[in-house]
Simulated scan of single mutants.
Amino acid sequence: MRHLRGNLAAIGVTVLVLAVLGVVAGYVWSALAPATRYVLIDGAPHVADPETQSLIEADGWFAVVTGAFGLVCGIAGYVLSRGRPVEVLLGLAAGGLLAGYVAMLVGGTAKGAVQAAGPGGYTTTTSLDLTAHGVLFAWPLVATAVFWVIEFAVTYNERSR
């Protein structure tokens, strides 16, 4: 029972730390990604410039920011795993998913305000949003991949001695 509690604690702490880092990542994403301008017509938002690339750029910046956080978390997770690599790895996977979701929520609410009124509606700067939801997997994928690459390199190096 004590062993199980220790394992669950390692997973829980890892998930909690990554969730807090998700808040930081959300603010970083909102600072780097461009906001998309919308026009509200009859209460419905319409993209002000249909040829804008800002929606794609926002997804790209999200992948870059969460991937960078995943890289750091994977390295830190490996260094700090101390006899509980499986638990930390599970925490990196679950916590990375949660952190990506938290980053999306925080970053999505960090931007957005009415900028100017126009005859066709109100032109606004929207809060950020993801259009490619697959980028939510960047954090856990990079974190776990980095963890395994380091584990492979260390194990390979030890075996070749």
Rank of each mutant, 00 (worst) to 15 (best):
L8A: 08
L128A: 07
L18A: 08
T52S: 15
L128R: 02
A138F: 07
V106T: 14
A116N: 11
A153S: 12
L105M: 08
A103T: 06
P34K: 04
A145W: 10
L92K: 04
V17R: 03
V39M: 05
P140C: 06
G100R: 02
V154R: 10
N7K: 05
T126D: 14
V28K: 01
A153T: 13
N7E: 10
E51Q: 09
G83P: 10
I41M: 13
A68E: 07
F152N: 11
N7M: 13
A9C: 06
A94H: 06
T52A: 09
L21M: 06
G77T: 05
T14G: 15
L4H: 00
I41Y: 14
V15K: 08
L18F: 09
H133T: 12
E151A: 15
L105N: 09
A110K: 03
H3R: 08
G60I: 10
V15H: 06
V47H: 07
L92R: 03
T66H: 06
G91V: 11
L55Q: 10
M104L: 11
A143C: 11
G121V: 06
R5E: 02
T125Y: 14
E57C: 01
G91M: 12
L136V: 01
P119S: 10
D129I: 03
G60Q: 12
A117F: 14
T14M: 15
A9T: 14
L21A: 02
A138L: 07
G134A: 15
A117T: 15
L80N: 07
L105V: 10
T124D: 04
V39R: 09
T155P: 01
R82P: 01
V47A: 10
V28M: 04
V23L: 01
F62Y: 14
Y156P: 01
G43Y: 03
L80R: 11
Y101L: 15
E51Y: 06
V13C: 10
W61L: 09
A44W: 02
T109V: 08
V114H: 00
P140Q: 07
T36M: 03
A31D: 09
G96E: 11
A68P: 03
G67R: 13
T155F: 05
V24F: 12
I41W: 13
H133N: 13
L89V: 01
R84N: 05
G121P: 06
D129M: 07
G83W: 05
I150P: 08
V65E: 04
A19H: 13
D42A: 15
V24R: 03
A153M: 11
F137Q: 04
R37L: 14
